[in-house]
Design a protein around this nucleic acid. Structure first.
Lengths: 129, 129
DNA sequence: CTATCTGTATTGTTGTATTAATACACATGG
DNA sequence: CCATGTGTATTAATACAACAATACAGATAG
């Protein structure tokens, strides 16, 4: 399947298993993953990103405990039917709040004018994916 | 002194000592800390944030190895004279790039319109410090 | 039935982050 | 001199993250 669904930074400070769970939360909230959609297998993700299968399994297990995923024994993981995809824009914006506040703090430490930061972000956002 | 110079999140995924080093980099690049300025003592920062003095010491040592700080034996740490404060705006904006790109990635995962993100960031940036 | 795919449980090892409790070398004010 | 303030080295303990290597249980296609 599509093991490139996830972006993983093994060198980053954020634990890999948590990176995956957080991306799952956003992809489901945003509607790119809908109820019933199958996820790439543990071994597939691990092989693609050259990480340990158990690390992926841990992420999936946490996502299941959180109600994001459902485990179909012998088959694999799918997005849970109770997982409401396509949440309201306001609710999705709230999920971005921590990153926004971190950005504001760093901008102030760097004494960067708001306009400069906003213009750079505009450019990055408008570049095609 | 001003042990509140730093913002520390002991519960965060980012190691405390690295949080401190990164803030030092930005505060110096932005000019809020200039060459020769004295830093709050290890025990002061540790007491204020209720963390271990050795963790702060580790941050200061790394900052010294990086050329940001100078150690005055028996006195304390000061911003290094070779530490060029007030770097160019472009150079400071470059230090913000990783956080900006992380924000863009998360916005796309959440399927949030660029305008919504920009407007929220504008509000946060224009709120008084 | 068999091979192959799922996720997972288990055990052990490695590296790192943090805390704790001392102890030391150096500088400074009284 | 002495008390007090610097930063730091040391040792031990704890916790966590990731890896490695197996092995198992269930589903499914042939």
């Amino acid at each position: 399947m599509d093991a490139s669904l996830f972006t993983v930074q093994p060198a980053g400070p954020e634990p890999i298993y948590r990176q995956i769970v957080e991306q799952l939360r956003r992809l489901i909230a945003g509607g790119q993953l809908g109820a019933g959609d199958a996820l790439p297998s543990v071994r597939e993700v691990a092989g693609f990103h050259v990480i340990n299968p158990m690390t992926v399994s841990r992420a999936y297990s946490l996502a299941e405990a959180e109600g994001l995923l459902e485990r179909l024994r012998g088959k694999g993981m799918v997005v849970a039917s109770t997982s409401r995809s396509s949440q309201s824009e306001a609710s999705r914006l709230a999920m971005l709040e921590p990153s926004l506040q971190a950005l504001v703090r760093q901008s102030r430490e760097l004494e960067l004018p708001a306009e400069r930061v906003l213009r750079r972000l505009t450019t990055l956002l408008e570049d095609e994916p």
